[in-house]
Amino acid sequence: MTAIAVQAQRLLTHRRPKRSFFETFIRSLIILCAAIAIVLSSISVCDGHWLFAKGKLFGLWHFCAIGNNSALKCTTNLTLANITGINIGMILARSMVSFAVVVAIFGLELLMVSQVCEDISSRKKWSMGSALILFSFLLSSSGVLSFLILLRDYITFTGFTLTYWCEFIATCLFFLNGLSGLHLNNITFPWNRMGKN
């Protein structure tokens, strides 16, 4: 009798609520979009050229100016741009957007692990992953905002490069995926209720 009770308890402990197709699809979509955001942000940070205005190309890592022969002359000495605080400002901006990518990678890892290894702690892993993705949004948006404030006198809508728009889209995706992940976890069946049944 005792052995049967132990086996029944084990079955109840290991029993997991079945997810609907719609929930699985939404979670997979969030993971896919988070991965796309990481790729876009990585490309944007590595290229770093975000704004072309008044014959100058401003980036996270380089400053370029058009020479006499219409060729771009680039340098890592950002002080040559003659903008107050550009050196420290760009260090801050690129540090935040770079760190945002790293944090988002850890967040994506947690999201994927929570789906592959479904157990009692899956819900907690998903929440932590979503929170990290949302934190990536805060870092990324702070970096983009710092860049815009620093170069406010040079900003034109048509001056933004493709890599800047990649970062802008990645920032929006970080926000949407992080918020959606947390919200989805709150409205779906919580894993930690299993022990109460």
Rank of each mutant, 00 (worst) to 15 (best):
L57I: 09
R27F: 11
T2Y: 08
I66Q: 12
L32W: 12
A93D: 03
V102I: 11
V101I: 15
L182D: 02
S28Q: 09
R193A: 05
R123V: 06
I91W: 12
I31L: 10
V45E: 00
L176I: 10
K125S: 03
K196L: 10
K18Q: 05
L78T: 12
L80R: 06
A35E: 05
E118M: 02
R19Q: 05
S121M: 07
K124T: 12
L51M: 00
I83V: 15
M128F: 13
D153A: 13
V113F: 06
L11S: 14
G159F: 03
L132T: 08
L72F: 02
I4V: 13
G143A: 11
F25I: 07
S180H: 14
T171N: 08
L29I: 05
C166R: 03
H62V: 11
N68C: 13
A37H: 02
Y164N: 00
Y164V: 01
L182M: 14
L139W: 06
L92D: 11
A53Q: 03
A5F: 07
S70T: 14
L40Q: 04
H62Y: 15
S98C: 13
R19A: 04
R10A: 04
D47R: 03
P190W: 02
S127P: 07
D153I: 06
M96R: 06
T171M: 14
K73H: 15
G55E: 09
G181W: 01
I86L: 10
L173K: 02
M128Y: 06
A5L: 03
N68S: 15
I133R: 04
R15M: 13
R19H: 11
I105D: 00
L139E: 03
T188L: 13
T188V: 15
R16H: 14
F160I: 03
T171V: 10
H14P: 10
